[in-house]
Design a protein around this nucleic acid. Sequence first.
DNA 1: CGCTCACTACGAAACTCTTCGTTGACATCC
DNA 2: GGATGTCAACGAAGAGTTTCGTAGTGAGCG
Lengths: 129, 129
Amino acid sequence: MTDRQPPRPTDSELAILGVLWERGPSTVRDVHEALNKDGSTGYTTVLKILQIMTEKGLVVRDETERAHVYESRYGEQKTQRQLLADLAERAFGGSATKLVMQALSGRKASADELTAIRNLLDTLEGEKR
Amino acid sequence: MTDRQPPRPTDSELAILGVLWERGPSTVRDVHEALNKDGSTGYTTVLKILQIMTEKGLVVRDETERAHVYESRYGEQKTQRQLLADLAERAFGGSATKLVMQALSGRKASADELTAIRNLLDTLEGEKR
DNA sequence: CGCTCACTACGAAACTCTTCGTTGACATCC
DNA sequence: GGATGTCAACGAAGAGTTTCGTAGTGAGCG
């Protein structure tokens, strides 16, 4: 009835979504050029993946212009949270807290970053009480 | 020279690794029975995936007994951190901090969990100074 | 000794993902 | 109006994943 659960994007799809989030609605050419800054992907490859993503519902396509314009259907944060929930489910026994703690301890964060996280914690706790 | 970077486990592989981490070294039968508690996977399917994982180096196999015994080659935490680093790279522009903050805000954690995370933060900051 | 059971090995089939070559449509430029 | 360039669509090839049927092998039982 409501929107079906979007499928988990693959690596290539995620790379393209990154471009769309950064640039906003873009043509195939735009995406291709943005990706080719570092990697090397053919134009038709990008096109094909965008077509598949359209079928999957990951992006929406505006066909009014000759060069179709693609836009990510789900926001960056929503997608990121989806991926995190997914990973928590698959690799952390469903515990997002375990995921967070592992991410924190497995990594050197700067003092600034730790402070930012602490502030976020404060906010969350404030909401709760 | 040193160990080659282990490949990212697939979903099925991760499910099997979960069993191996929980039970310790196990035979195919052990894993199969553990997995069939809820899902439905054939015995030979589990065997095949374990064989592939052996080729990939994700597990090690002890063949001294007739029923081979499989063991995860990498610990649970190490694998989890690998997966997190990977996801941070692919979906969070390489920023583990962004990942943590998204995981925190996208989720309702209990007060106890927030406290646990806060304590971890204290420990990390303590080490740093 | 021969049967049966448990187990591994092999390989095929279906599916997805990634890549790209080719084709055809459309527009613009000379 | 024909050549040139841009673009979407199609299809195919190759790799990886997941599934499982079938075959072979060894161990122990009767």
